[in-house]
Design a protein around this nucleic acid. Structure first.
Lengths: 234, 234
DNA sequence: GTCTATAAGATGATAGAC
DNA sequence: GTCTATCATCTTATAGAC
């Protein structure tokens, strides 16, 4: 975590591995990801990122340009993977129900959320940081809405359309509002802030995503059904 | 908003009003609140706050000390009011159901959330900023959990205990997790990020808290009931 | 590709005048 | 109480050596 300075790079064993450039680029992204996730964009300096990555600040600018471009690079790197995983998950779910038993609201929601929980559980610390970062951006008034839109809109529209198929009588404004509620819950859970640990005095742990899994899908599905059912008008 | 520099203070008419000190202190808090809400703690400099408030940076340090203490002062100012409003709201709800019809999960949740929606709708721009600020802190990994705990824990425990009264068979871990989901949805709605506006292409507006009101209570209540009902174990 | 050195300016905070 | 002036440090970013 505190970064071994010199690195066995051109001195190690065998040849300098020639891929050093790409490795350092990834190390910069890793360092930036972790620090941005913990302290936000303005809470981190390029010097700190450079120190954490074991390189000089100049190298950051060489690879990414301005600080904000580094941030966008961090954000973009995993967004693609995330979107593809979710699309694939929903493809599978829909295909499994093309004939035979009908899709359910809870099933669709599970297909939408579960890939993120799985990736967070199995993907390593980089993914943990990334989800914390996305959660922060999601709640950032100044430019958060725009950034989320830029990276994640398509997959959300896919969710809404599928739900519309499952519940044709549902109104779009209800679906969008329910999605808003869902994403607030989901992102807070994924960001593992430790809040629930102190609040519950040890009964719950924010790192326990299995506990999230067995509750969140049912919680959101019931919420959707309730709102759709009462056909709220306002 | 851009602040009239000189202020008709010691030069106006009549005597200097003697309360200038307190007024400026509030103006600093107002300016800091708005800017912290939009850009976060590290995204704002004391100089920017001073400029927005129409005072010098030295005055900020005179009143509040270090920058972080200014932030805490901003956070504390409205937290008390908020907590009292929520406690009062739940007192009323419980008193109304002391005899006669039983309390409901949706009723308790409404008593817990509705004061915030009302204050946001009627309280003016300062409150809007404040909610955006709280939402940001709520999703801040480094020190957000601790800050939320420090300012808002008691009223949350009150909610959980009341829900436990309404559903005695419910387990605490379920109640805490459901609260976590609830607060994620609520805070995102209150922060009015504009995300739902672009996502829904104009069908929904994040400033439309009336739309939140007619959906969020039912959504959360159904979620709670569902999780409690299936008695999740994990 | 990667680092050294440094420019050019911003930052939080304080001492002291009024 | 409020401002002027200022310090010591840190900031992003670049030019140029290796």
């Amino acid at each position: 975590m505190t970064a071994a300075k010199p690195l066995a790079r051109s001195g190690g064993r065998g040849r300098p591995s020639k891929a050093t450039g790409l490795d350092l680029k990834q190390m910069i992204l890793d360092a930036a990801e972790g620090m941005f996730a913990r302290h936000g964009f303005y809470g981190v300096t390029t010097r700190q990122v450079a120190a954490e990555a074991g390189v000089d600040t100049a190298l950051i600018h060489y690879y990414f340009g301005a600080k904000r471009e580094l941030f966008d690079a961090v954000f973009l790197r995993r967004a693609e993977i995330l979107n593809q995983a979710r699309i694939a998950s929903m493809d599978v779910y829909e295909a499994d129900h093309a004939r035979g038993e009908a899709m359910t609201v809870e099933g669709v929601i599970t297909a939408f959320i579960d890939p993120l929980l799985r990736i967070s559980q199995d993907g390593g610390p980089g993914w943990k940081s990334y989800f914390a970062l996305v959660a922060q951006v999601n709640n950032t008034p100044a430019w958060g809405g725009e950034t989320m839109t830029r990276f994640f809109d398509p997959v959300v529209h896919r969710l809404v359309e599928t739900l519309k198929t499952v519940r044709p009588q549902a109104e779009y404004r209800d679906l969008y509002w329910c999605y808003q509620f869902l994403t607030g819950s989901m992102m807070l859970a994924l960001s593992e802030t430790g809040r629930i640990d102190s609040l519950s005095e040890g009964v719950c742990h924010s790192s326990d995503l299995e506990a999230v899994r067995v509750r969140l899908f049912a919680y959101c599905a019931a919420g959707f059904e309730s709102v759709i059912g009462r056909a709220a008008k306002a």
